[in-house]
Design a protein around this nucleic acid. Structure first.
Lengths: 206, 206
DNA sequence: AACTCAACCTGAGTTCAGTTCAAGTTGATT
DNA sequence: AATCAACTTGAACTGAACTCAGGTTGAGTT
C-alpha cells in the first residue's frame, strides 16, 4: 500500500516530457505499434537517453497506467466525499469519471487496453514494482465503488445485492466507454456521461 | 459483408490444432507474452510450418477474434429469435452471452484484450482482410443489441432513450466481465450471469 | 508399383525494434 | 576551477518474428 514516490525531477529532467509524448503516441497509435525510438524523437533526445528514465518501454507504459489509476482514485474521492446522499454520491462518482481532458482520455484508453499486463509477473525489478502498485490501485478503485454501494445498501437507499460484483460491473460499464470513445466522434462526452449516469442509477438504486 | 470462407481443411491440416493451441496460449499467457514458437511446439510442428497456415502471429490472433465474434453473433441470434417479449429477448441475449465453455471464455478474453487491433490498418493483405471482417462483425453485434432495444422501445416495453448509445453500454457491461473472470475464481459464472441479467433489465426496462 | 502434384514441413539465415555498454558531456555546487 | 551526479550518445548486442530455398509426405492416377 506504499505509494511509489516519483523520482524528484532534477531541473534538466525530461521524464515528464517523455511521459507526455508516450501518452500521445501509445494512445493514438497503440503501444505495440509505436516505436520506442519515435517517442525519443518527439521529445528530442536519442533513443538510449530514454533508458536513463525508464528501464524499458513496458516500464514506461506501466508507469502511465499507475499514474492514471492514482488520478482516477483521487478524482473519485474528491468528487464523492462531500455528498452524503448515496444516490448523489453515485451520480457524483460517475460524473467525475467523465470530467476529463483529452490527454486524460488517452491515458484511460491506454490503461483499459493494457489491463492484462497487470496479471502476469514481470522480469525486472522496477517494472514489477510498478505492476504491483498498479494492481493494488485497481483494487483500491474497485473498493471505492464497492464501499459506495455498501453504504447505500446499509442506508436503505439501494436494494441489497452482491456489492462486490455489482461494484465491478458499474466500474466495467463506466470504463468500457474508453474503448470506443473518440473526441472527434459524433457523440460529445457530456451526453455519454449523462446516459451512463442514468444507467448506473437505475442499475443500482432500483 | 462477405463472410470469409474458411480454407477447407485438407485431411492433414493442422490449422484447427494451431488455432486451439493458440487460444490456450494467448488466453492464459497473453498474446505478447507467448512465443509463436511455443504454439508450434505444443502442436508438434516446427516454427516455420506455422507460416503455411497463418501469415503472421497477428494474423492468427485476428482469425481467433473474427471466429469468436461470429460465434457470439450466431449465439445471440439463436437465443433471441424465438422470444417476442422484449424483456424476455433481452434476458435471453444476456444468458446466451454467459452460456459458454471454458475454451470460449479464453476466446472472449483474447477478443476483449485486443479490440484495439481493429482500429488501425494492417500492412499485409490477409491480416487486413481479417481485420475488416472482424470490424464489421463488431458492428453486426452492436446492431444486434441496438435492434433489440429499438424493438423494445417501439413496442413500449422500454422507455425511449438513445438506443445506439445504450446498446453499446449494455454490450460493454456484458463483455467487461471477461477482463477479470477466471474459471478458478470464487464466483461461478452462473451467479455473475444472473446479476448482470438483472442489471441489464433495470438499466433498459425501467 | 511407379508417378505426380499439391499440401505440408524444415534448417539456416535475415530483419528489426528493444536493449546494453562504455565512454562521453553538461551544469549546478563547492 | 574542480567536482560530481545527472544526463546523453554511437556502436554493438539480443531475441523473437519472419523469409527462403529446398525437402518430405501421401492421396489419387496411370
Amino acid at each position: 500500500m506504499t505509494r511509489i514516490l516519483e523520482p524528484e525531477a532534477g531541473p534538466r529532467s525530461k521524464r515528464a516530457a517523455i511521459l507526455a509524448a508516450a501518452v500521445d503516441c501509445f494512445g493514438e497509435t497503440g503501444f505495440e505499434a509505436t516505436k520506442w525510438s519515435t517517442v525519443a524523437e518527439r521529445v528530442g533526445i536519442g533513443q538510449t537517453a530514454l533508458y536513463h528514465y525508464f528501464e524499458s518501454k513496458t516500464h514506461c507504459l506501466l508507469t502511465i497506467m499507475r499514474l492514471e489509476l492514482q488520478r482516477s482514485h483521487d478524482r473519485f474521492v474528491e468528487a464523492t466525499e462531500s455528498a452524503d446522499d448515496p444516490v448523489e454520491a453515485l451520480r457524483a462518482g460517475v460524473r467525475a469519471a467523465y470530467d476529463v481532458s483529452e490527454h486524460e482520455v488517452l491515458q484511460m484508453r491506454i490503461l483499459q487496453n493494457h489491463m492484462d499486463l497487470l496479471s502476469g509477473a514481470r522480469k525486472s525489478k522496477r517494472e514489477e514494482a510498478e505492476r504491483i502498485a498498479a494492481r493494488q490501485l485497481v483494487q483500491v478503485v474497485e473498493r471505492d465503488w464497492t464501499n459506495l454501494l455498501v453504504r447505500g445498501m446499509s442506508q436503505g437507499a439501494f436494494p441489497l445485492r452482491d456489492a462486490q460484483l455489482l461494484g465491478a460491473s458499474v466500474l466495467g460499464l463506466i470504463v468500457s466507454v474508453w474503448r470506443w470513445y473518440r473526441p472527434a466522434g459524433p457523440t460529445p462526452l457530456s451526453e455519454i456521461g449523462e446516459l451512463i449516469e442514468g444507467a448506473c442509477v437505475r442499475m443500482i438504486a432500483s
